[in-house]
């Protein structure tokens, strides 16, 4: 099954080419980080389908995952 992944700011370099990623049943944001070689400690905020979420949320078909590093510029 496919999900859509948006990686923001310094994490954008890890984004899958067309934004889509194949996942399996049982995958979570944390396991997606491994698939995309994203250093877990660099991810500070996670959204699934526009809602703030945890690293161990179970992902399902067509979910939209957004991930952010620490951001504080002004």
């Amino acid at each position: 099954m496919k999900i859509q992944v948006s990686c923001f700011a310094t994490l954008s370099k890890y984004a899958p080419d067309d934004g889509n990623l194949d996942i399996e049943k049982g995958d979570t944001p944390e396991s997606v980080f491994k698939k995309l070689s994203i250093p877990s400690e660099e991810v500070k905020v996670i959204f699934v389908n526009g809602q703030s979420s945890k690293r161990d949320t179970l992902l399902k078909e067509n979910d939209r995952l957004g991930i952010f590093p620490a951001i504080g510029g002004g």
């Binding site: 703030s52 620490a70 504080g72």
Partner: peptide, 22 residues
């Protein structure tokens, strides 16, 4: 209420702006 403070973990040097500029 709810806040976006999870974006502000760490110290000033850890914000992505240090790498990406503004």
């Amino acid at each position: 209420g709810k806040s976006p403070s999870a974006f502000w973990q760490g110290d000033d040097l850890q914000g992505a702006e240090n790498i990406l500029g503004n």
